[in-house]
Design a protein around this nucleic acid. Structure first.
Lengths: 157, 157
DNA sequence: TGGAAATGAATTGCGCGCAATTGATAAATC
DNA sequence: GATTTATCAATTGCGCGCAATTCATTTCCA
């Protein structure tokens, strides 16, 4: 630990912890979702649609913080797998509405064990879980509100 | 909120919060690191090297939880930018040692304002920050210890 | 010592994730 | 009503992130 700037030390960085935790989650989900031939982002889209079917690409993106550049190819894959249908909105042809197929709806039951599977991996008490969740959502909000500003170079901490 | 399985609801999911927070961090870093032509993973590699120069690809990967499939092209880009050198270890030619160039070392000073820039964005007290950090690192450990096991389908919660 | 096993990096293939652009449709403005 | 502006999805390009494979080198050990 001979870093001149302690703030740059890796172990102390919240961002790195979140970054590496996201990857750890992703790897765990990869295994758990393998029987359904789903990736974690695809599973997230299905969770959204199970709660409310027939959303537009934009509406799905708003819930998941993703844009069309990510969602369009992802949704095409879900369509190719037979889980969703993509169709232009009759009233507003700019929008594409995503609706579940029978197979997509049936998947909700088939995959109902997934959250428990992940939950067991974490092994947290309910209160602890909810407190952590609140803190993280709060942090995410502050990050998303981040307004880019010029950074001064050569300004030793 | 008509989901049959409440555990599948999006807002309650710790994994989704971590997932979307990681992206929020990434977007914030994209702006902050733009003046240095660095991505966040590239910046992480430099932090590791600033602490300990001359590590092998494998050693860097162990610290960042990344493998050669990710690191090799990333390190080639850092080399192309003139921040690091890649050279086979004389004693063990299987390993490739990564060492900072003068420019790579100088970057540590130039980028010394980055952690503060991110920290301001978060706006947390020190104690709160450390407690959160500890919880997350603990969770990451449990996730990384996850042993894949078969999932039973059709098991309504 | 010679062959099998292990190790380390590189490569391939695929799916995100996002900035930037394009093209089509709808809404706003004059 | 024609033109400008805004909105939405799709596309392009690039950099991860990781599983799986390949190739070279080293270690193990019989």
């Amino acid at each position: 630990m001979t870093a001149k700037n302690p703030a740059q030390a890796l172990d102390n960085q919240l961002c790195f912890t979140v970054y590496s935790m996201a990857h750890a989650f992703n790897r765990a989900y990869r295994t758990i979702l393998a029987p359904f031939d789903l990736t974690y982002p695809q599973y997230l889209v299905l969770i959204v649609l199970w709660a409310e079917d027939g959303l537009s690409v934009r509406e799905i993106g708003a819930k998941l913080f993703l844009d069309s550049g990510t969602l369009t190819p992802l949704l095409k894959r879900l369509e190719a797998q037979g889980y969703v249908r993509r169709a232009r909105d009759k009233a507003d042809e700019r929008q594409v509405r995503i609706s579940l197929t029978d197979e997509g709806r049936a998947l909700q039951e088939r995959a109902s064990g997934v959250p428990q599977e992940i939950g067991c991996t974490l092994g947290m008490a309910g209160d602890e879980y909810r407190a952590l969740l609140g803190q993280l959502a709060d942090l995410r909000g502050r990050l998303q509100a981040y307004e880019p500003q010029a950074i001064q170079e050569d300004e030793p901490g």
